[in-house]
Amino acid sequence: MFVLTASFLFATPQRATAEELLKARLAQNLGPISGLTIVANAKGIFARQGLDISVSNFTSGKQCLDTVLGGGADIATTAEAPVTAAAMAQQPIAFVAGMEYSDLKTMTAASAGIKTKADLRGKRIAFTAGTGSEVYTSVLLKAAGLTSKDVTLVNLRPQEMLPAMAAGSIDAFDTWEPHVANAKKALGEGAIPLETKGLYSETFNIVVTQSYLAANPAIVSKFLASLIEAEGWLKAHPDDAIDVIATATGMKRDELASIWPDYVYRVRLDDRILTTLKTHAAWRLETGNHPPGASMPDFSRVLVTAPLKTLDPARVTLEARP
């Protein structure tokens, strides 16, 4: 059971003057996984909700959360991997909403001859440490009947994977879109996606620090209200949403349109999020990828339901005990 420790006041949003807007700094992973924050910013929804949001863009959710924890931003878009790492390190984070989930993918070099998961044996596989890419890689190897000792793992940032494959220094890489689509576009027949659909879905979420939430409940409330409004607009205008997100991320419109069904946008706190967090934390404990002395986090101290539940109770459907 969650204890609501703060009061949140909400009013019908009205047009605010520049002087009245509440300021906040967003650390955003600039990709379609951040589609709702991209839309909220591009369509003026943040301002309509009374916010002045300055955006700093990064290439991973880990960088976003690290920036927030370091004081360089107030709000992070991030996946479950950085969340579990922070929770196990006893960082005072507040997970206030999920906003998207989508499958991670594997792209292979045609020259590597990888036709099935088992063909990954002996290959050089790129991943991004500290992100969902690392967990996905572990799950992929397990599904292939392999361990990390059966392959050569190469830690790269997502934007480094395509150049590495083009140079022939890796045989495959595990990451999120749009990096997989970008590789296919750049390498053509030289890049072949490996079938892994449904193997691992990464969530993308909104996280702040506990102290920021306590000091700025109105900002967090307005931010989540903005995402809910952006979700409604995105679903009502999918073609326009593709235009907006493609422009913001530098993707070709047709390339984003081809993978658009991969992205499931919904502002929520549900059992899928909790299960993903627990699965990820269990993986950390099994592999030793955690701070010394860490144990399974008490996610009732991490997942904070009050802001979203006050806005729309139907979006909070946690039934399992955190």
Rank of each mutant, 00 (worst) to 15 (best):
V135I: 15
K184S: 01
A181S: 15
A167G: 02
N155P: 06
G145I: 00
T152E: 10
Y200C: 14
L153Q: 00
A143M: 14
D171E: 02
T131W: 06
V135L: 12
G190L: 05
A144Q: 01
T203K: 14
G190E: 08
E160K: 11
D171P: 00
N155F: 09
K185L: 05
G145S: 03
S138P: 06
K197G: 09
G198M: 06
L199E: 09
A126E: 09
G190Q: 13
E195G: 05
L140Y: 06
I170R: 02
L153E: 00
M161R: 01
T128K: 15
S169D: 03
G198W: 06
G190R: 15
V180W: 04
Q159E: 11
A183G: 07
G198E: 04
W176V: 11
V151Y: 03
R157H: 10
N155D: 15
A167H: 01
F173H: 02
P193G: 04
K184F: 01
T152H: 07
G132Y: 07
A181Q: 15
G132E: 09
S133C: 11
D150C: 11
T147G: 15
A172Q: 03
I125T: 08
S138N: 14
A181W: 08
G168D: 01
A167V: 02
L187I: 02
K185S: 09
Y200W: 13
V180T: 12
